[in-house]
Design a protein around this nucleic acid. Structure first.
Lengths: 254, 254
DNA sequence: CGCATCCTTGACGAAGGTCAACATTCGTGG
DNA sequence: CCACGAATGTTGACCTTCGTCAAGGATGCG
């Protein structure tokens, strides 16, 4: 499954700068002394580029540091005792992965590149060392962890939806929202998960996913060619999920 | 829905001491000066006890602090535009809730007591103030956030299982594991979610949950009376989920 | 060009949702 | 303490949705 990690990163369309990267508040927190910013920049580690199918880490592996996707895409999955994969998440440029391993130093799932991918990594030792002298770094980390936790709450919500179309709609909107948050198009998304990956993530059969995609296309809700998806009708997708996604900013009702 | 928050906490069986509480590493980190421990103890806030049905916080509400369940049980849920509840999680004694709101100061979901419940609360301002002088507090918070993130990865995995029995089995094992981690019995669990709550959480119909419970009882995998459940056969439940749950400590494969 | 992988489509059957009736539990007030 | 009603849980019959199996296309890579 794993191949040599020698990649030609051809697809720079999905590459982002540190400005859009969600890790940049760690790398370059505002208000820090210049020497610390330099130091942070120096410890920022660039692992070898990954090609499609390369593993970034495995279940049980020792955590080396926090990864940020710079370009490409990563999926995480669990493998059960029969060798069946179950996709638990996907990570787009600017997003962090591996945070769940901080507390015990071991990864809980496998992480695999969906396409040629560049990553940044902050070694865990350096974080610990630097954060002793600079509490701001920890503050930022808490912020990021909390945000990711909230994203997972959303995911739990979406996976609890009762029918297949709703779950697919939720996935599409979630992907759209995350792309948009990173400065990409909200409507033209490239979700590099295979139909099998999507099915596995949502607890569906591949054929069901394929049929739902076909159905949504027929109803002019989306168009797609392979894994390039264009959302035409956000309202209909939102109706399937049952509520607007932008609940984060909802006005308190009392 | 909400009633007056005047509770007689009669069920002290599920009450735990600070020793088993997952917040205690924040409240009383080892190696801290005595005066700081005193200060931490003083800022620890005890909100009025909740009765079944009382809301702890609502979607969109300003986050006041981090809550820890001391006794009782709390569920979190999202309400869609049709007023339909969808349960996104439940919290047992010793567990924290509200961590997902740290990054933006607003709660994303509703939290409601499933039974008479005591909580502890650390006001967010005090955490911020104290952690400036005591980085250990932040370290602990990062640890706890990471752990909860990993729990959510598990939940995403469980909700992606393809059939109803697997998802119910995963819920039971998850509850059992969490009870056990707090020093309660792993086999005799009191899951105070209604069948409707369980169904909503797992994306099933109430009747399906009821039938699966009945089926598992007939197969001598569990027994139950109302919401008091005894697990008789962990192996069968694990087989339904497809893998051992105790993957956290799994040996790395390379 | 040819093979492998991924995706789509159809036919069929099984799993689970819906509707309805009934049972049980729990809280309330007499 | 009992009686009543509301809320919760269970069971059965039926029907929809989704999974399975099988075949055929599309796409990409060597």
């Amino acid at each position: 499954m794993t191949r040599a990690c020698q990649a030609k990163i051809s697809d720079i369309a999905t590459q982002i700068s540190c400005l859009q990267c969600s890790i940049n508040t760690i790398c370059f927190p505002s208000g820090l002394d210049l020497d610390i910013r330099d130091e942070l920049y120096n410890i920022l580690n660039h692992p070898p580029p990954l090609e499609r199918g390369d593993l970034l880490f495995r279940t049980g592996a020792t955590m080396k540091g926090i990864y940020a996707v710079r370009s490409g895409a990563i999926k995480t999955y669990i493998t059960d005792e029969n060798g069946q994969e179950q996709v638990t998440g996907y990570y787009l440029p600017g997003e962090l992965l591996g945070l769940g391993a901080i507390h015990n130093g071991r990864h809980f799932q496998n992480a695999e590149a969906l396409e040629s991918s560049y990553l940044c990594m902050i070694p865990v030792n350096d974080i610990n060392r630097l954060s002793k002298s600079h509490p701001q770094i920890q503050e930022q980390l808490i912020h990021l962890l909390s945000k990711q936790l909230q994203n997972h709450h959303k995911m739990v919500w979406h996976l609890g939806l009762k029918n297949a179309t709703s779950r697919v709609a939720a996935l599409l909107l979630n992907c759209s929202e995350r792309c948009h948050a990173r400065g990409f198009s909200a409507s033209e998304i490239k979700l590099n998960l295979s139909r099998q990956d999507i099915a596995s993530h949502l607890g569906l059969a591949v054929e069901t996913v394929s049929r739902i995609f076909g159905q949504l296309k027929k109803e002019n809700v989306i168009t797609f060619k392979g894994r390039q998806i264009d959302i035409l009708d956000f309202d209909t997708l939102n109706q399937h999920v049952g509520t607007k996604m932008a609940t984060t900013e909802k006005i308190p009702r009392i």
